[in-house]
């Protein structure tokens, strides 16, 4: 504060002194901006080089992309709408079966992952786990489970358990256990400590403390997070078939690779529609459960 007063009041011309200080500040700021921009440009240039960005290929490919979109678009004539639709979705019963498999994979994955998260979210909460090493180990375990992408687990599990939905379910379950474990632990760390003290004061052990003091407080949040995760897992289960882990992804990969054009659009639209339907119903269910909470 005193510095500034001296600058303004000390010189012969306070306005000139102020302007000089302002210019210096602006120059410093401008230098910072220029350095930032140069670094940014270097990063872009390096990425363009490493990423093998070929503008000419892209420009040449653009009409190809338009053609591709044109090719996958179905032939729908107003006069023969029913017949054209039937031809577009010619394998609808099989696809619906695969879609159902996908939803089941997501459901079981979320269920098992949720159970796994329940098992180690309590040790992973700082306020509920007095022994630091156990807390530390549980946290790191959740981090590792979460940090490896589902598809990588799926590759490994397909090797171990063979092709099919089992590998996909396990891959989703492990990733979900990590993701939900972290969220659950964060919910646990925000609980009201008074019921915990009450149960401990009444002579309850650790498990009774969790069951009667923590669970009633956190269960609504768990359900909400679990449903959100189910929505995410439906998206994940739709593509996990790309590595052979069951569901509709395998079929989608096949039709894209084999250039079976109209099937591509049919399957993609089917998946998007299923995802939207599940999102909407989960949101309804979530609001319903939250609405109940106040009364019970």
């Amino acid at each position: 504060m005193t510095d500034r007063i001296q600058v303004i009041g000390g010189g012969d011309d306070p306005v000139a002194a102020f302007e000089a200080a302002r210019d210096a500040a602006r120059r410093a700021k401008r230098l910072q901006t220029v350095v930032g921009l140069v670094l940014f440009a270097l990063a872009v240039a390096a990425s363009v080089h490493i990423g093998e960005v070929r503008i000419d290929t892209f420009v040449e490919g653009l009409p190809g992309f338009a053609n591709y979109l044109n090719d996958i678009a179905p032939v729908l004539r107003p006069s023969h709408l029913a017949g054209d639709l039937a031809e577009w979705y010619w394998a609808l019963p099989r696809w619906l079966g695969l879609l159902w498999d996908t939803v089941l994979i997501a459901f079981v994955g979320t269920l098992l992952g949720g159970i796994g998260a329940l098992a180690f979210c309590f040790p992973a909460s700082r306020n509920l786990m007095p022994r630091y090493p156990i807390y530390f180990a549980a946290r790191r375990l959740a981090e590792i489970a979460r940090a490896v992408p589902e598809l990588v687990y799926a590759l490994i599990f397909v090797f171990a358990f063979g092709l099919g939905p089992l590998a996909g379910v396990l891959a989703i379950a492990v990733h979900t256990a990590g993701a939900l474990g972290k969220l659950f632990a964060e919910v646990n760390e925000n609980v009201d400590p008074k019921p915990i003290e009450g149960v401990i004061a009444a002579g309850g052990n650790w498990f009774q403390m969790i069951r009667y003091a923590v669970i009633p407080q956190v269960l609504p949040n768990y359900t909400s997070y679990g449903l959100l995760r189910f929505e995410i897992n439906v998206r994940g289960a739709a593509v996990i078939g790309f590595v052979g882990a069951g569901g509709i992804g395998q079929e989608l990969m096949f039709v894209i690779r084999e250039f079976i054009y109209t099937d591509v659009s049919a399957l993609v639209l089917l998946i998007v529609a299923a995802v939207v339907c599940i999102d909407i119903s989960c949101e309804k269910l979530r609001h319903y459960l939250i609405g109940q909470e106040g009364l019970s």
Partner: peptide
């Protein structure tokens, strides 16, 4: 919403058909 609803991996498969295998399709 429709663009968002299609997974990145599906976009990747589609762009592999357009620009060929490699990081550019991923970008």
């Amino acid at each position: 919403d429709s663009i968002r609803g299609i997974d990145q991996l599906i976009w990747a498969l589609i762009f592999i058909n357009v620009v060929g295998l490699g990081p550019f399709a991923g970008i």
